[in-house]
Design a protein around this nucleic acid. Structure first.
Length: 732
RNA sequence: GGCGGUGUGGCGGAAUUGGUAGACGCAGCGGACUUAAAAUCCGCCGGGUAACUCCGUACCGGUUCGACUCCGGUCACCGCCACCA
């Protein structure tokens, strides 16, 4: 054993030994308690970043701890290898995404090994390999048979120049990020997975996951978005040009406030609603308005910022209880994708309806009063606002000091509170719950509605008009329709030699891929060229680790030994989609009797981001220039507080921008490879584990790394001294 | 607007079920070694005081022999979701 601590000498020796001995290969052993420790697998972007190092170090420490506790530990690793960045890199460098991806995997695997992680590399998977994605295809066909997968037309962002579908993030200010062309909404056929069928289960079962952070469970519950209310219909006799009643003469709406049904003064429908489209046929102005609503992105968050706009259709529907005519408006605040794309509007008790009614001078009608008014006399009156007569209700407060009344100058939140029904005929004096029960019962009796549960969650559209993904195993035949690829012809292999040029999916232009024979009738047919969303790949990789070598089946009995994952570690950014899809997919596999496990992840740790200082200069004209902290000298005052910073190369001051997530755009990243090369993996790992609790953000500090390095050196020396002192010691 | 979280020295953060607040690290200060520097090592390091049995865990109050920890309220910050009817 040598006196000097030289990690670059000793770490590779240990790593080679582990590799040769297969020290971390896990074997199923029913006599031992298993422990499955899983880190979210990386996208092979090219190099590891500090977030990876943190993630895998946390997992490795937990694995080590559990191994020392005598558990049979599995810690696998793989590659989330399909996806858009490979296509972009391909365009820039004229390299096929496959080559780019495999090269990156080779490099990053070396990096991971140099970190000394106790990974069982025998179980490595890469989602872009046919051995893996054939089971995506196989199980997709099983879901199709079971009715969990289905086809329907869906709305996408379409770039008319590139002839391609854009993800929401690729739409900037309503234009394609590459072409700058105005993005269109387009209806195209896509495959969907019926995750909504599992909505209630996915929501309820969140309570069985005490090992998950509260906020992640809350985020999932929000996303699923259960809401209980009443779905009912207004009636009408509006017919289309062929004389058919639109929607069978019913305009369905959903409401959580059925108690306000007597206060309805208009109905609002989404721009894409059949009634709106019908009215637009004879109304060019309305048609133009509908076109305007269709512009922009399919992203809902942006809709929330828009001003409320609408237009009268001139159509009327009949109120199901009062039989009064109710005007139908098109409104941009109504979403086609939620419920039936239509709402009943009660401007006296709903903020959005209020704002809309005020803008377009629509009537309003108060029908709910505070509970404190119960059993007391109130006065009806009319006030004139904006030249309109507005009905108001007044009451003396209990101390007879003031008058409380509805006034319609501004919205007040109290108007939306639950209360007592008034001016509602037979429902007068009923409280919220009672009124809803009574109204739902009456609507049911008329066969015009009932209580219903509505979900925010939508079915999962998995079709992507993209090349670098798992092909959807369907063949389109003019005679037989959509025919599944027979199991014995799986996998449908993605050709790996294509180089996308930005003008759509190369599979569309490759006859050797899309030309095929119909498996049913043998006639010439066309292969589906859409590929699957990459979230499909990551929805079950944790199952495959248990049986990665099985070429005959998707999963086998070993899955039931290892699953569920005892500890899952990864970024909070996957709190909703990846984790929800995985929970759904596992349930689908359970229902098709492939696995026993229902909840795949028992404990979840969402590790914090890695932050670093931000330094910049803001020139009088032009872009902000960011400087990497390694190029900066910080000035301290007497107490050691930072008071300023200068760029080392020119000695001139730079602005201190506080701390932010390490990113290319802020130029504040630290390359893990440099860190490992200089100080060794142990120092890097020690610092990361030590500087902050795993769930919290970690503030990078070069001095902190030095401290960890000093610690390692001291540790080395004390071992060295021990070895020299002890006559029989053979530590080296 | 809804939901979730967090507030402790100059800084990152400890404090297992309510029992010595500030572990450990960073920065800072003093010292040793050195011709000098780096590296390394030792000591000090919340505030106040001449001193202590003083004050101090965002703020106000409560429970308790005892509160960073439990309860009620306030303030501030962060994250996610959001015309969801």
């Amino acid at each position: 054993m040598q006196e000097r601590y030289e990690p670059n000498l000793i770490e590779p020796i240990a790593q080679r030994y582990w590799n040769e001995q297969r020290s971390f290969a896990a074997k199923e052993d029913a006599s031992k308690e298993k422990y499955y420790c899983l880190s979210m697998f990386p996208y092979p972007s090219g190099r590891l970043h500090m977030g990876h190092v943190r993630n895998y170090t946390i997992g490795d420490v937990i694995s080590r701890f559990m191994r020392m506790q005598g558990k049979n530990v599995l810690q696998p690793m793989g590659w989330d290898a399909f996806g858009l960045p490979a296509e972009n890199a391909a365009m820039m460098n004229s390299v096929p995404p496959a080559k780019w991806t495999y090269d990156n995997i080779a490099y990053m695997k070396k990096q991971l090994q140099s970190l000394g992680l106790a990974i069982d590399w025998d179980r490595e998977v890469a989602t872009c390999k046919p051995e893996y994605y054939r089971w995506n295809q196989w199980f997709f066909l099983r879901m199709l048979e079971a009715g969990i997968a289905y086809k329907k037309t869906g709305t996408v962002n379409w770039d008319p120049v590139d002839q391609t579908v854009l993800a929401n993030e690729q739409v900037v200010d309503g234009r394609g990020w590459r072409t700058g062309a105005l993005v269109e909404k387009r209806e195209i056929p896509m495959y969907y997975l019926r995750i909504t069928q599992y909505a209630d289960d996915l929501l309820q079962a969140l309570d069985t996951l005490p090992g998950w952070p509260d906020r992640v469970r809350a985020m999932q519950a929000n996303w699923i978005g259960k809401s209980v209310g009443v779905r009912f219909a207004f009636t009408h006799d509006i017919k289309d040009s062929s004389g058919k009643l639109i929607g069978d003469g019913k305009l369905y709406v959903f409401t959580t406030r059925a108690d306000t049904i007597m206060g309805v003064t208009y109905c609002a429908v989404a721009a894409e609603h059949p009634l709106a489209l019908h009215a637009a046929q004879s109304n060019p102005q309305l048609a133009a308005f509908i076109e305007e609503c269709k512009q922009g992105t399919a992203q809902e968050a942006e809709l929330a910022q828009q001003e409320k706009k609408g237009m009268d259709t001139g159509l009327f529907v009949t109120h199901p209880l009062t039989k009064e005519p109710v005007p139908v408006w098109v409104a941009n605040y109504v979403l086609m994708g939620y419920g039936d794309g239509a709402v009943m509007a009660v401007p006296a008790h709903d903020e959005r309806d209020f704002e809309f009614a005020k803008k377009y001078k629509l009537p309003l009608k108060p029908v709910v009063v505070p509970r404190s008014w119960k059993g007391r006399q109130f006065e009806e009156s009319t006030e004139v606002l904006d030249g309109l007569a507005r009905p108001s209700l007044k009451i003396q407060d209990e101390k007879n000091l003031d008058e409380f009344y509805f006034n319609w100058n501004n919205w007040v939140p109290r108007l939306a509170e639950h209360g007592i029904c008034v001016k509602s005929g037979k429902y007068d004096d009923m409280d919220y719950d009672e009124a809803i029960d009574a109204i739902a019962a009456d609507l049911k009796e008329k066969s015009l509605g009932d209580k219903q549960t509505q979900w925010r969650l939508r079915d999962w559209g998995i079709s992507r008009q993209r090349y670098w993904g798992c092909p959807i195993p369907i063949i389109h035949c003019d005679a037989c329709g959509d025919v599944p690829v027979p199991d014995d012809q799986l996998p449908v292999v993605l050709p790996e030699d294509k180089v996308p040029d930005g003008s759509g999916n190369p599979l569309n232009k490759d006859p050797s891929f899309y030309e095929c024979a119909c498996p049913k009738c043998g006639k010439k047919a066309r292969r589906e060229t859409d590929t699957m969303d990459t979230f499909v790949d990551s929805s079950w990789y944790f199952l495959r680790y248990a049986c990665a070598d099985n070429s005959k089946a998707m999963v086998d009995a070993r899955v039931n030994y290892w699953l569920p994952v005892d500890q899952y570690i990864g970024g909070i950014e996957h709190a909703i989609l990846h984790l929800l899809y995985s929970r759904f997919w596992t349930r689908a596999m359970r229902d098709l009797k492939l696995v026993k496990v229902e909840e795949p992840f028992t404990n979840l740790l969402t590790q914090g981001m890695v932050l670093n200082d931000i330094y910049f200069r803001k020139p009088a004209a032009g872009r902000i220039q960011y400087f990497n902290p390694s190029e900066i000298d910080v000035k301290l005052d007497d107490k050691g507080k930072p008071v300023g910073a200068v760029l080392r190369s020119d000695g001139q001051p730079v602005e201190m921008g506080g701390m932010g997530t390490m990113s290319k755009s802020k130029n504040n990243g630290v390359d893990p490879q440099k860190l490992v090369d200089e100080f060794g993996a142990d120092t890097a790992r020690l610092f990361m584990m030590f500087a902050a609790p795993p769930e919290q953000t970690l503030e990078w500090s070069d001095e902190g790394v030095q401290g960890a390095f000093r610690f390692m050196k001291r540790l080395w020396r004390s071992v060295y001294e021990h070895v020299n002192a002890g006559p029989t010691s053979k530590l080296d």
